[in-house]
Amino acid sequence: MTDEEKKLTNRRFYKAGEEASFADAKLNTTPQTESPSYLLAFRDTDFLLREELRPVRFQLELLKTEMLMEEANIGSTLVVYGSARIPSPEHVEAVRATATTPERAKVVESLIAKSKYYEEARKLAHIASTCAIVEKGMRQFVVCSGGGPSIMEAANRGAMEAGADSIGLNIVLPHEQAPNPYVTPDLSFQFHYFALRKMHFLLRARAVAVFPGGFGTFDEFFELLTLIQTGKMQPIPILLFGGEYWNRVINFQALAEEGVINENDTALFHWVETAEDGWQKIVEFYDLDC
């Protein structure tokens, strides 16, 4: 035994990767070693995908993103929620060309009118990324989106144009869903469970910008409001972009008048229209020198 091997601090069990390499190097191929039952459990994909293993998959989906975020020194995030359908200004004409009926034309023009929010999301991400705040060796207000197109793309794009990293939390869907090209590759994550994805949106969030969107945006926005309203999460700046849109689709004041929320619950978020106004709310909330 060498002096190194005699050290009390040395581990006495092989690491999982080493054990896996031993299994790969097996010399004899027999019916027993070729059976799926002989695979190491953590290398048996069919086993890991069994219904009974759902709790394990939950844990893996929580741990993988958490560990890689920690290794990337992500201290906090600026999360951007919003539609996957609003076109960027440079794609407005291509979207307009899809209007083949008067009904569709009306919808398309409504989406095109919201393309200004693509630019505001892009600018907000650029401002936050340019500030490049670091505390205790950890990067703060790293831009984080759902990793998809439209408003999500705008956020990742703004960060990239500022020369900064950004996060994309993508979700597996029945139809094709790929991360946008502006997400930092090593911070591009894919989720099976919506619940775990939404948890990671908020674990490091220190501010959330909510742009016009559909069911997914509503889901994310209202879960955030619920967590703060019920005291499960401490308040953070919630920036609600697009007063005309939100006041048309949700009557917040009516909810208060009906008594199903308190009047002061309508103060959980800030109405903003520009990236500069949104960032100013964050600066004031945290007393930032940026």
Rank of each mutant, 00 (worst) to 15 (best):
Y118T: 00
N170W: 07
A125N: 06
E120G: 03
A162R: 10
P149T: 02
H126I: 07
A128N: 07
S145L: 15
E135Y: 10
V172I: 14
K136G: 08
D165Q: 13
A128D: 02
S166R: 00
I127F: 06
P174T: 13
S129W: 09
I171H: 06
G158Q: 00
Y118C: 04
A155N: 04
F141Q: 04
V143C: 03
M138E: 06
E135S: 11
L173E: 01
E135R: 14
K136W: 12
K123D: 10
A125M: 14
A159R: 02
A121G: 04
I127G: 00
G148K: 00
Y118K: 02
C144V: 15
M152K: 03
V134W: 12
I171W: 04
L124M: 13
T130Y: 04
M152E: 03
A159I: 09
V172L: 14
N156F: 08
S129Q: 12
P149Q: 05
A132D: 10
R139L: 14
R139V: 10
I151H: 05
L173H: 00
E120W: 08
A154W: 01
L169A: 03
A162G: 09
L124V: 09
C144K: 09
G147E: 04
Q140Y: 02
A132H: 10
E153P: 04
K123S: 10
A162K: 07
A155C: 11
R122G: 02
E119V: 13
V142E: 02
F141W: 09
I151S: 00
L124P: 00
V134M: 08
M138Q: 10
Y118E: 01
A159V: 06
S145R: 06
E120P: 04
A121S: 11
Q140F: 11
A162M: 14
F141D: 04
R157M: 08
A154L: 07
V134G: 01
L124W: 03
E153M: 15
H175K: 15
A132W: 11
R157P: 00
R157E: 11
H175A: 12
G147P: 04
K123A: 14
S129K: 10
K136F: 10
M160R: 14
L124G: 00
A132S: 11
S145Y: 15
A164V: 08
V142W: 01
S129R: 07
F141E: 03
V142R: 08
A155R: 06
G137F: 15
A162Y: 04
K136D: 15
A155T: 03
S129H: 09
N156L: 12
A164G: 05
A162I: 10
C131N: 05
M160W: 09
C131R: 07
V134Y: 13
I127W: 07
M138C: 07
G168W: 03
A121N: 07
A159C: 13
M152C: 10
K123V: 09
E161A: 02
A164Y: 02
M160C: 13
A121I: 12
S150G: 04
I171S: 11
I151F: 09
R157Y: 12
H126T: 06
N156Y: 04
H175T: 13
G147I: 08
C131P: 00
K136N: 12
R157N: 12
V172R: 09
C144I: 15
E153Y: 05
E135L: 14
V134P: 03
T130Q: 06
G163R: 11
A162L: 11
I167E: 02
S166K: 05
A162N: 11
I133K: 06
C131D: 15
A128H: 01
G148C: 09
G158P: 04
Q140T: 03
N170R: 08
K136R: 15
